[in-house]
Simulated assay, not measured.
Amino acid sequence: MIDFDYSRATHEANALMEASQAGTRILAGGTTLLDLMKCGVEAPRRVIDIARLPDMAGIEVGVASIRIGALATMAQCSEHAGLRAAAPAVTQALALAASPQIRNMATLGGNLLQRTRCSYFRDPQAYSACNKRKPGSGCAALAGVNRDHAILGTSASCIAAYPGDLAVALMAFGARLHIAGKVARVADVDGFYRLPRNRPDLETELAPGEIITAIELPVSAALRRSHYLKVRDRASFQFAAASAAVGLELANDQTVRAVRVALGGVATRPWRAMPVEEALTGKLFTEANVRAAAERAVDGARAHAHNRYKLALTPRVVARALMEAGGLA
């Protein structure tokens, strides 16, 4: 790591002013930024610690909506009884992420801004070609070992998979992010994450000098009847080979009134599986209908040399998650 200046923000206005300066990075739990600094990917001149800003760690579960402060930790949220009842997919996604030590430190805001776990991105000493680090330098993963890489939302510039779990659940259920900056604004999670196209270094719509302050999630029948399934090589501290956040609203005759599906581990950003939702809405909730609809999860997918298994795995993960949520598993 290079030398850098450190300061601790005592109020939001101070944090925003500091964050707008070139070469400055925001520190909350530190589980992402410090890791990238050790890898040599990030080299900020100044780090601003916002971990002690007031009024940014609350969890409020209301009748119509849920609001979570961006400085709430993953552990606090995953263990919150009201949140577990209202949004099981969200708390399951948090509980299955990382390790207990990291969940105790990592904040929700930082988690939403975590960067890819692509080994080529995280090893600048060995691999200089990475369009996420240096646009126009190339993508070493395209011809390299790409077993963990994306099959959806890729481009000729980047096939790195988005690694998070929380954002996948938030994507499924229409969450919004409250963002402070020169002008306070609210952004849909669906529009917050960018596709790589020819600028994979630009991963979100968060502008310099802006800070995520809170997450807002509308309460719905589908959210209350939701499930998060994560399939990975080992049971702890492992990123998803494929994951699915799903929710269901069923009529008395078991017709699907509403369904929400989002994917993780298989796309360059949290991925809403609209074709699955469209195929299942209005149908009877049967295993045959679920499995048929789940095949649509890989519509438009493009596999590479080592990740073709995800074409078969992803629909199975979606079907299993839906059947778990609907009581067929």
Score class of each variant (00 low, 15 high):
K38Q: 13
S119K: 14
E60Q: 15
S20K: 15
L284D: 15
A57V: 08
H227T: 06
R308T: 08
P208S: 11
K182Y: 09
H304G: 14
F192T: 02
A235E: 12
R232Q: 08
Q101E: 12
A143D: 14
R103K: 09
T32Y: 11
I50D: 01
E79R: 15
G23I: 07
A85H: 13
R260V: 07
P88W: 01
E210Y: 10
D299A: 12
V290G: 10
A180C: 07
S128A: 12
P163F: 01
Q92H: 03
R115G: 05
R8L: 05
A150L: 05
R46E: 13
H227P: 08
Y309F: 15
S157C: 11
H80C: 06
E277M: 06
A267L: 00
L248A: 04
A150N: 04
R291Y: 04
E324A: 14
R115M: 15
I26E: 00
L166F: 01
E295L: 14
L33R: 14
A143G: 11
N146A: 06
I159C: 11
V246I: 04
R272H: 06
Q92L: 03
D49Y: 09
R232C: 07
V186E: 11
V266E: 12
S65M: 11
I48H: 10
A321T: 00
I2F: 12
A86G: 14
L142G: 05
F239H: 00
H11L: 08
L250E: 15
A288F: 12
T31S: 06
A319Y: 10
R122W: 09
R103P: 11
T31V: 06
E18N: 09
Q254T: 12
K230S: 07
N252C: 13
G264N: 01
S137A: 07
